[in-house]
């Protein structure tokens, strides 16, 4: 089947956004979104791995039998993450100093296995790469947004330490939003991540229902099915109940 790229983009960026649509990858979300900068670093590293694992899994999809696909995907993803870690460390060492902390965390991101299972294993390599990119960008945007909310409310700054990640030229991004702020520790700690996530989910739900009411999207929202592998099945022909 030919891939519908605008649908893939919409799915990755909004409808099935890893955080706000699929509710996956909450572990990295809670761990790194204390600041917007860390969210950005984690998001970009994950996006790169999503693209690569999408292509790799799409290329081997016909060689894998259904019974062993999950362990085979895990092997491929773990291999890619380790290779990226080693290559960055060797040849882009300054970037590795900053992103290096995030890369091992990517293995814990079930969204990557989820995309491998739900999309890459059923589509051509270019479509899988595009899906990985869109999912990754949607994920990055979510992490930066949650990170920004937590950082502003929790420590009164925005993009703290951005110059370490992006170079001194982008140091102007570092803003003190609330001067002489004592900080709100709860929001920096993982519970704060859950609280902010809850409010943002409610917000997205309102936007979605407004859109539906105004007839923007005429799709009858099918109930999504979540499994341990993080697979969801918006299409009626989905085979989640295996």
């Amino acid at each position: 089947m030919s891939a519908d790229y605008s649908k893939i983009a919409r799915s990755g960026l909004w409808d099935d956004n890893i955080i706000f649509g699929q509710m996956l990858a909450l572990c990295p979300l809670l761990a790194v979104t204390g600041t917007a900068t860390n969210g950005l670093g984690m998001g970009l590293a994950t996006a790169a791995v999503l693209v690569m694992s999408g292509v790799a899994i799409s290329l081997v999809r016909n060689a894998i039998t259904p019974e062993i696909r999950i362990p085979a995907f895990v092997l491929v993803i773990a291999c890619i993450v380790t290779v990226v870690d080693m290559a960055l460390n060797a040849w882009l060492h300054d970037l590795h100093k900053v992103l290096g902390l995030f890369i091992p965390l990517i293995v814990t991101n079930c969204a990557i296995l989820g995309r491998a299972e739900a999309f890459a294993s059923r589509n051509s390599a270019p479509a899988a790469a595009f899906d990985g990119l869109m999912m990754g960008l949607g994920f990055t945007a979510s992490l930066v947004f949650v990170g920004a909310c937590r950082e502003i409310l929790g420590s009164g700054t925005l993009f703290a330490n951005a110059s370490v990640l992006l170079g001194p030229r982008l140091g102007f991004l570092e803003i003190t939003v609330i001067p002489d702020y004592d900080g709100f520790l709860l929001l920096i700690l993982p519970p704060g991540g859950f609280i902010i996530l809850g409010f943002l989910l409610a917000l997205k739900s309102i936007v979605d229902s407004r859109q539906r009411a105004s007839g923007h999207t005429a799709d009858s929202r099918l109930p999504k099915v979540f499994t341990a592998a993080g697979v969801l099945s918006p299409e009626p022909e989905g085979e989640t109940a295996r």
């Binding site: 062993i68 362990p71 085979a72």
Partner: peptide
């Protein structure tokens, strides 16, 4: 098949490790 996959990924990791070890 799974064993083949394990061998292939192990091979890739070994090669990349060898390529990057000196630089790291």
């Amino acid at each position: 098949l799974l064993g083949l996959f394990s061998l292939l990924t192990a091979l890739v990791l070994a090669v990349v490790n060898d390529l990057t070890r000196g630089a790291i």
